[in-house]
């Protein structure tokens, strides 16, 4: 039929042009603006050690946010991450009481995280339950187990060298957590943007039926993502427990909302299908800078939550309002 060969170019817009017009660029501009504003607002801001301290505001949450980003892009969500932290921390505390050394504690923390994630994953992918309900349930269950084990007690019998993960510095003001955060950011960016696995995640999030009909093993990939999210919560639990040096059942309470906020602020569509890891990285810095800056100005934490809540709604509402206003 086709005698005339039709040539279809691979691409029209250059990747650079696309990148310049992206959400990430806008977010980066916001981050820079906040940075500049902060450095004018407080004389204590531009201090290497202060800035280094500020990174602790987001590194642990951001680690979870990377995995959560993949999960949300695939069209699921995990609201139990903060409770996984509590359970993993409790398990590590119990292991420490039993005399486990630092390598053993790490193993316990990671294994608890992975098991919790796998539990969520089985319920969602095997039984076909909605992840939002499942993880609201496991959110109560996991933290509930911590309460059963600990009640109003505290575990604080951690070995001395365990403190390194949350309090140690690799080089000058560069903390272990910051290095881990950077390393994980690179790994997650590569996995999501440069591998078959990442491509499948986008396909699933955009159209789970279409992905299934294209021969993608949708359930298996979602299961892996739940385990990954659990693993990251386990890693965050190690860092946080090490930093605080103690475990109470209320550890990390409410973090799931901050993690989700970070992910959404980073430009990941809460309905799945789009978003990038660089976006989440910048969003982590934005949230860290806002918290730190307001803290230097002696604004209480609860008021910062207004800013975070407004940011969450605002970043989604503003583009839509803008589009509505332009369409008039």
């Amino acid at each position: 039929m086709s005698t005339m060969e039709r040539h279809i170019p691979d691409r029209l817009k250059s990747p650079l042009e696309r990148r310049l017009k992206s959400w990430e660029t806008l977010l980066l501009a916001v981050a820079v603006a906040i940075f500049i504003a902060n450095s004018f607002a407080s004389p204590y801001f531009l201090n290497a050690w202060n800035l280094s301290d500020a990174t602790f505001n987001f590194t642990e949450k951001a680690m979870i946010a990377f995995a959560m980003a993949l999960l949300i892009i695939s069209g699921e969500i995990d609201l139990s991450v903060a409770s996984i932290i509590a359970l993993a921390s409790t398990a590590m505390g119990a292991a420490a009481e039993a005399g486990a050394g630092t390598p053993g504690l790490i193993l316990v923390g990671l294994a608890t995280g992975v098991l919790c994630g796998a539990f969520n994953g089985v319920l969602v992918t095997r039984l076909g339950l909605p992840s939002i309900v499942v993880t609201i349930g496991t959110m109560s269950l996991f933290r509930g187990i911590s309460y059963i084990v600990l009640g109003d007690q505290v575990y604080n019998n951690y070995p001395i060298d365990f403190a390194y993960f949350g309090q140690g510095y690799v080089f000058w003001v560069i903390s272990f957590e910051l290095v881990l955060f950077a390393l994980l950011a690179v790994i997650y960016a590569v996995v999501l943007h440069k591998t078959n696995f990442g491509r499948a995640i986008y396909a699933i999030g955009n159209n789970p039926t279409g992905a299934l009909f294209s021969g993608i093993r949708v359930a298996r990939i979602k299961f892996i993502l739940f385990m990954l999210t659990g693993l990251m919560a386990g890693i965050a639990a190690i860092c946080l427990t090490s930093r605080l040096g103690s475990t109470r059942p209320s550890i990390g309470f409410g973090w799931e909302l901050e993690v989700v906020t970070m992910v959404v602020l980073g430009g990941i569509n809460i309905l799945g299908g789009s978003g990038t890891i660089p976006g989440v990285v910048i969003a982590a810095f934005v949230m860290g800078l806002v918290t730190f800056g307001l803290g230097l100005l002696n604004v209480p934490g609860i008021v910062m939550s207004i800013v975070i809540g407004a940011l969450l709604i605002g970043v989604i509402a503003l583009p839509r309002l803008w589009a509505m206003w332009r369409a008039r």
Partner: peptide, 14 residues
């Protein structure tokens, strides 16, 4: 112990 309540309601949800 009332500390059981959270875990029980979580299990009930699931």
């Amino acid at each position: 112990s009332p500390f059981w309540q959270l875990a029980i309601s979580g299990s009930a949800i699931i």
